[in-house]
Amino acid sequence: MSNLSAVEPPDNPARSNETGHQDHNLLELRGIRAAYERIDVLFGVDLVVPEASVVALLGPNGAGKTTTLRVAAGLHVPSAGDVLIAGRRVNGAKPEELARHGLCMIPEGRGIFPNLTVRENLRMMTYVGRSLAEIEEIAYSRFPRLAERRTQTAGTLSGGEQQMLAMARGMATEPALLILDELSMGLAPIIVAELYEMVAQVARSGVSILVVEQFASTVLGVADYAAIMVHGRIERAGRPDELAADLSKAYLGG
């Protein structure tokens, strides 16, 4: 599948790492600080995504959720702290290298190339080392509608179809770690529900997932763990049911 290794999941995703179980975690962020130019955004984020589990990252606008994901995917270089993947420090690794080693991030908005056809979009997924035929097979079997539209320019697809195409990368490349940023943005609730059904399927196949989502209730149905982020820090972390009460407080700034 990939070169990211696998061990048992521990209990608490945002617990500190002194217990010596860090090898059990597929992704671990330790004391991440990050800034855009001179504006600090993250003030020491500790976050753990255990093997084969879904972690939801929740929080109000501007809390630093997207930046945290960008740091994990190598798109943003943190000013301090460590990023560990499968126990290996990957600070400063380039996003394309992480992608080739089994990290798949689907960014906010539509994670597709609008001026490329559906098939060309799928061809871009072959950098992970799979053939176009394999990718097409998985993508079209999961999303038959994409097969009908394979020669169409991706920008002309409906919003839901575009997000399916983006999601197809998360499935067809069979990553070890899937990072999803606001999958629901601008989509009808029914399509959101459909997409999260896919996310649940991917999770059941053993892929670790870190997901940021505004629709907290939707994502908490899929997540094994959740962390609430406020003002560039992880405020609370735990099982989804433990956090439900804290959630409104975090969003409404209580």
């Binding site: 995917a73 798109l75 380039k94 996003p95 394309e96 992608a99 080739r100 798949c104 991030m105 689907i106 960014p107 994670g111 597709i112 190339f113 609008p114 001026n115 490329l116 060309e120 061809r123 871009m124 997924m125 072959t126 950098y127 992970v128 990368r169």
Partner: peptide
């Protein structure tokens, strides 16, 4: 060709191209 498609992909969205594993 894949590198040609990657060139066009980089025009659309350069960071996304890197997330796909293309070396910009």
């Amino acid at each position: 060709t894949r590198i040609g498609i990657a060139m066009r992909a980089a025009v659309d969205d350069r960071p996304l191209a890197t997330l796909n594993g293309a070396r910009p």
